[in-house]
Nucleic acid binder design. Structure first.
Lengths: 123, 123
DNA sequence: CGCTCATATGAGCACCTCTTCACACGCACG
DNA sequence: CGTGCGTGTGAAGAGGTGCTCATATGAGCG
């Protein structure tokens, strides 16, 4: 029963080859998660701010990005849990900074793509 | 009226500077949209398959990626509308391929990040 | 010509995400 | 040492996203 219900295949060899070459599931999932972190305008603004500002506290981040402090705190928590940002505490303040430079590369690469080609939405 | 309702600010100068340096809203939105396309494991698998397979029809893509043909068709439509893939029709078949190389760069960069650092989920 | 196959599309539904609201916590400062 | 401020967190609701199922379209084939 290889042809189960609906599994039409045109080029079985290519299908096998492609299947073998696909990254393992954990890598795919991790990739999706990373890109998911970058798929929110709010978080994107935060990251852009940190790219420019270097190290900023929550309230300044909120002010600069035009978001509520609570929303920023939630967003930063997510980014923190995914090792995208690091926090330094000083008294009751919390200063955030980017953890690595991958973000900058992804950000710039994506930005180049977007500003160069509007990624239109036509048929 | 700088101190509106809740806008505590520590370093007003830095906040202004960062605000001025943030990419314009359309760019941010476009960025988020692009990364959003890359944030789904199913679409990621499709793109990985096309990176390797070059050009494939819907049913082979579905077989190689372990998804229903309907799901693949929906996903490809999204990617098509965002100019990520191109389609070539031949008879009743539809052959899809990647539209540009940005995807490959983003994919590889993200993959390097993921496989190098597991992007853990601890506190 | 009518039937089937490959793909496309629409509706409906389950799930996940992001925001706000309300409150907890710890540190500074009087 | 109590009060205020900066921040963190949980619950809840609105909205978006991706799946499946059913059906449409259009090309090949008998």
């Amino acid at each position: 029963m290889s042809t189960s219900s609906h599994a039409r295949v045109v080029d079985a060899d290519r299908v096998s080859a492609v299947m073998a070459s696909l990254p393992p599931e954990p890598a795919i999932e991790g990739l999706a998660q990373v890109f998911g972190l970058l798929s929110d305008p709010g978080r994107l603004r935060l990251m852009a701010a940190l790219l420019e500002g270097g190290e900023m506290c929550v309230c300044d981040l909120a002010a600069a990005c035009g978001q509520s402090e609570s929303a920023v705190s939630h967003a930063l928590r997510l980014l923190r849990l995914n090792r995208v940002v690091k926090v330094r505490r000083s008294g009751r303040m919390a200063y955030y900074r980017l953890a690595d430079s991958h973000v900058r590369m992804l950000f710039d690469l994506g930005l180049a793509h977007v500003t160069h080609d509007e990624a239109g939405s036509r048929d």
